[in-house]
Simulated assay, not measured.
Amino acid sequence: MDTYNYDESMGSGFLAGIGIGGTLIGLAAAVLAIAGLWKMFEKAGKPGWAAIIPVYNFIIMLEIVGKPLWWIIGILIPCVNFVVIIWVTNLLIKSFGKDVIYTVLALIFPYIIYPMIGFGSDRYLGPTAAEAQGGDSFNQFKNYKNPFDNNDKPQDPPKNDDRPQDPTV
């Protein structure tokens, strides 16, 4: 006859409690991120309810940042989708006047940064994409100066012909 092991049932209950607690914390974080994104969309003049529809919210983000609609293909391609999501998040955060550090924080803690921007005093400044402002993405590199090219200081020491020459050499 098998005996009932009381220790195993206690461990199972404990793990179930951790699972339920983690699920509730995850749901609360998702609700905070969606609420913040909802308010950010409203500040940008877009419908806030679009934040709860998975692919449509990315289309709205593309409109807010000024990128063309065909960029939606980027989130459908594996590995490329990470780059596209980071890039669009960066442009979204910059559209509200925030710096790159907020992009990094928004990628790690969207449940903090999105409500902070959405419910805070930040205003929508307009699309940050260069294409939406009448330029292209590479205008910033046209007048790029290489920091290693310092024309003020010559690389080779100057030859001084005013020195007396040693005739014996």
Rank of each mutant, 00 (worst) to 15 (best):
D2Q: 06
T3F: 04
T3Q: 02
Y6A: 03
Y6E: 12
D7K: 13
D7H: 09
E8H: 02
S9Q: 07
G11D: 05
G11W: 09
S12Y: 04
G13R: 00
F14S: 08
F14M: 12
G19E: 03
G19F: 13
G19D: 01
I20P: 00
G22P: 01
T23Q: 02
T23R: 01
L24K: 00
I25K: 03
L27S: 03
A28N: 02
A28R: 02
V31F: 15
V31P: 01
I34A: 14
A35W: 05
L37A: 06
L37F: 09
W38V: 00
M40D: 05
K43S: 02
A44C: 06
K46E: 15
P47V: 07
P47Y: 05
P47M: 05
P47H: 04
G48C: 04
G48V: 06
I53G: 02
V55W: 10
V55H: 00
N57K: 15
N57W: 03
F58S: 04
M61P: 00
G66P: 08
K67R: 15
P68H: 11
P68C: 09
L69T: 13
I73H: 01
I75L: 08
L76H: 00
I77L: 08
I77A: 00
P78V: 10
P78L: 03
V80A: 11
F82R: 01
V84P: 07
I85D: 01
W87C: 06
W87M: 12
L91F: 05
L91S: 12
L91K: 11
I93S: 03
K94Y: 05
S95M: 06
G97A: 06
K98A: 03
D99M: 01
V100F: 15
Y102D: 11
T103A: 10
V104E: 09
L105H: 04
A106K: 09
L107N: 10
L107S: 10
L107A: 12
L107W: 12
F109K: 07
I113C: 07
Y114F: 15
P115H: 03
M116K: 13
M116H: 11
I117H: 12
F119W: 14
G120R: 09
S121V: 01
R123N: 14
Y124A: 07
Y124E: 08
L125V: 04
G126I: 05
P127Q: 11
P127T: 09
P127C: 14
A130K: 12
A130R: 11
A132H: 03
Q133G: 10
G134W: 04
G134M: 04
G135D: 11
G135H: 10
D136W: 14
S137K: 12
S137C: 04
Q140D: 13
F141D: 09
K142W: 03
K142N: 09
K142V: 15
K142M: 10
K142E: 13
K142F: 06
N143P: 00
N143G: 12
D149T: 14
N150Y: 04
N150I: 15
N151M: 08
K153H: 07
P154G: 08
P157I: 08
P157V: 08
P158T: 04
K159C: 01
D161A: 11
Q165E: 13
D166F: 05
P167N: 10
P167M: 12
P167Y: 13
T168E: 14
T168I: 04
T168W: 13
V169W: 10
